[in-house]
């Protein structure tokens, strides 16, 4: 058995306009099943994936918030977002629905440097 890898899943896409947010979560849950050390990094429009009060049933989409809320059940606790991106959208972390860690650009570069594999969605 190989020792677990640090797998970083990165997304810059807003939810619902494409399947990126959901496809990212599917990879995250699979990494967890394989007992890998998985972390999520949301940049640019990706921070909008975590906005609270989503109601996508009105456009026949599944609610990502509920799937995101279940991440901790899969031991996926490392959810990082780009602090600049949140500010760019005029939002604060109190408007997100799950706990996240805000990172500066330098911290993001260190997170990438310390990961074994980075997958973009």
């Amino acid at each position: 058995m190989n020792s677990p890898k640090n797998i970083l899943l990165m997304s810059r896409r807003a939810p619902y306009g494409s399947s990126a947010a959901r496809d990212l979560l599917d990879i995250a849950l699979t990494c967890s099943v394989f007992e890998q050390n998985v972390a999520l990094l949301l940049l640019d429009d990706g921070v909008l994936q975590l906005l609270a009060n989503q109601d996508p049933q009105v456009i026949q989409q599944k609610n990502l918030n509920s799937l995101q809320s279940s991440l901790s059940l899969y031991d996926i606790e490392k959810i990082y977002i780009d602090a600049d991106a949140l500010e760019h959208h005029g939002l604060s972390h109190s408007e997100l629905h799950i706990p996240v860690t805000l990172l500066t650009k330098i911290e993001i570069s260190q997170l990438i440097a310390n990961s074994d594999i980075v997958l973009t969605v």
Partner: peptide
């Protein structure tokens, strides 16, 4: 630990480049 970054979008997608450049180590 060094990283090779690939970028495949034209310069009008300036945010993509900004995020990429901001994530680079020396």
């Amino acid at each position: 630990m060094t990283t090779l970054h690939t970028l495949n979008q034209a310069p009008s997608n300036v945010n993509l480049m900004q995020s990429c450049v901001g994530s680079l180590q020396p």
